[in-house]
């Protein structure tokens, strides 16, 4: 039982981690908490579903869906983030909440009455791999793999590339960055596009597992946000590790203590961890804004 729970916890945790990663990228690069991120991955899942239902293959649907969310990210930057660049953090948070309402309204209206949910075709069949008697879904392996790869890629990007360093510089001091000739606006546009791209990728990859429905954004978003805060919110590795911890703890507690605790387990851990470490597990002390 232990290893089954551990495997499913890692699987669930990689969903949280991948979603959290998108939020952390936007926070690291643009100092914004994007509460529309849940709607971004829901949009990707829904668009991907519509495309596959209309005969477009898996990879084509994935590419187009991610493209749609990337454009969505750019629109959010132009429509909500840029006008509020100098406003309070609360105003920015409310703006992303407002955007999430708008996207959800559109998704819900175009979702129409397809029933409670629609099933998204998986890349692989649902026959699990059986490793040492533990069941592992191939779809989960893909998710976990993508989460780790994205974490490493973005980590390298921020640390090594010129663009990545530019983004760091901009997020730390906008005016100074502009003074040394960095095109601040373009950098922010990139950040939002990349964050939303990650969200779209997460949406399409997890859709076969969590199924597609108009409200799929909220509960995963809250848990992923919590996971990101657990990890430290400005740490890419923290987001993934926070997500994994959240997933593992959820499954372990519900497996051993009772399934009634599944929904709340992660939040109980958050409270305990934050009481001991007020900046999360890997967060830097001076990063907390708002």
């Amino acid at each position: 039982m232990f290893f089954d729970l551990l495997a499913s916890g890692i699987a669930l945790g990689s969903i949280y981690g991948l979603v959290a990663l998108g939020m952390v990228v936007v926070y690291k690069g643009a100092r914004a908490v994007n509460f529309a991120h849940g709607e971004i991955f829901a949009t990707a899942a829904f668009v991907g579903y519509l495309l596959t239902a209309n005969g477009i293959g898996y990879w084509g649907a994935l590419t187009l869906a991610v493209l749609v969310t990337t454009i969505l990210g750019i629109l959010i930057e132009r429509g909500a983030y840029r006008p509020l660049a100098n406003a309070s953090d609360l105003a920015l948070i409310i703006a992303t909440i407002a955007v999430s309402f708008m996207i959800k309204g559109v998704v819900r209206t175009s979702y129409g009455t397809r029933g409670d949910f629609v099933a998204y075709p998986p890349i692989f069949s649902f026959d699990p791999l059986i490793i040492q008697g533990v069941f592992i879904q191939r779809q989960h392996l893909v998710l976990g793999g993508v989460a780790v790869v994205c974490m490493v890629l973005f980590g390298l990007f921020f640390a090594l590339t010129r663009h990545g360093k530019m983004m760091q510089a901009v997020s730390e001091d906008k005016e100074a960055a502009a003074l040394v000739g960095i095109n601040v606006r373009l950098v922010f546009l990139w950040i939002w596009a990349l964050g939303s791209l990650l969200g779209g990728l997460a949406g399409v990859l997890m859709a076969p597992i969590i199924l597609v429905y108009p409200d799929m954004g909220l509960s995963i978003l809250v848990k992923s946000f919590a996971a990101a805060v657990l990890g430290g919110f400005d740490s890419l590795a923290g987001a993934v590790i926070g997500g994994l911890l959240m997933g593992i703890f959820e499954q372990m507690l519900s497996g051993y203590a009772g399934t009634m605790f599944q929904d709340i387990a992660g939040f109980a851990v958050i409270i305990l961890v934050l009481l001991v470490r007020p900046s999360g597990l890997f967060g830097s002390k001076e990063q907390t804004r708002v």
Partner: peptide, 12 residues
């Protein structure tokens, strides 16, 4: 706790 950390602990 401050900022987002206070937010998430109270949401929890």
């Amino acid at each position: 706790l401050r900022g987002l950390y206070l937010a998430i602990i109270t949401i929890s």
